[in-house]
Simulated scan of single mutants.
Amino acid sequence: MDHYIDLKLLPDPEFPATQLMSALVAKLHRGLHDLRRTDVGISFPEVEAVEHGLGTRLRLHGPAAALDSLLALSWLNGMRDHLHLSERAPIPAQVQWRCVSRVQVDSNPERARRRLIKRHGISEDEARQRIPDSAGKRSDLPYVTLRSNGSGHSFRLFIRHGPLLASPSPGSFGAYGLSAQASIPWF
């Protein structure tokens, strides 16, 4: 993990930054999935400076060859007019490290009721009594809104930037560029 590339969203009068960031992460997910590499991580350097959301900057982290391979794919089609892509650069000499991971929040009581009905064969009324509308969990974590390629349903991908670390922790990254174990350089 020795290089990075910044993708900075440009202001757009038609689309809010949160919507553009969601579209960018969805496209990145497809690119990482197609590339089938586990050595590219992501972070959102502005996350602590913005009140809500992830900010307007997505940073890709990884070996130079992995980042070059990712950029050689056509995953940025349709987004190039909405962002500024930096040159690939080596990470600075003095950095801290942190894990950027997905947090799954079961915030949909209707989905939980459907699962309960299917698994236990109970009535809809009984499921509603067991899981009231107020049972949905809430999270203050920033997120992007994505659409499942399998079911077509929209979902929120909640993202946690873990505590700062003095040294890197090894591991691999998933198809969203996130990992609960592997750290990215933070600068």
Rank of each mutant, 00 (worst) to 15 (best):
S74A: 12
S123C: 01
V40G: 11
A23T: 10
L70S: 10
M21I: 04
V50W: 08
L116Y: 15
K118L: 08
L28M: 11
R37S: 13
D81E: 13
M79N: 06
D140G: 12
M79P: 01
L60T: 08
V103L: 02
L20M: 03
P132A: 14
I42P: 01
E14S: 09
P92C: 06
L60K: 07
G31H: 02
V47R: 02
H61Y: 02
E46Y: 02
L71C: 14
V144G: 04
R138E: 14
F44L: 04
A72Q: 11
L10P: 05
S74K: 15
E126P: 00
S139N: 06
G31A: 00
Q94M: 02
V25C: 01
L76W: 09
R57E: 03
H120P: 00
L24T: 09
L9V: 05
N77E: 15
Q19Y: 01
E87H: 13
R57P: 00
L116M: 15
W75P: 01
R98C: 13
L67H: 09
T18N: 08
L116N: 13
L146V: 07
S43N: 12
G152H: 14
L146F: 07
L10N: 08
L83V: 05
D68P: 00
S86E: 04
H29K: 14
L28P: 02
A17R: 04
P132M: 05
I42N: 05
S151I: 15
L67R: 13
G31W: 01
W97F: 12
H52P: 02
D81M: 07
Q129Y: 01
L28C: 07
S107W: 11
A64N: 15
G152A: 13
L67E: 05
R57C: 05
P132C: 07
R36T: 00
S107D: 14
R119T: 07
V40L: 15
K27T: 12
P92S: 05
F15R: 04
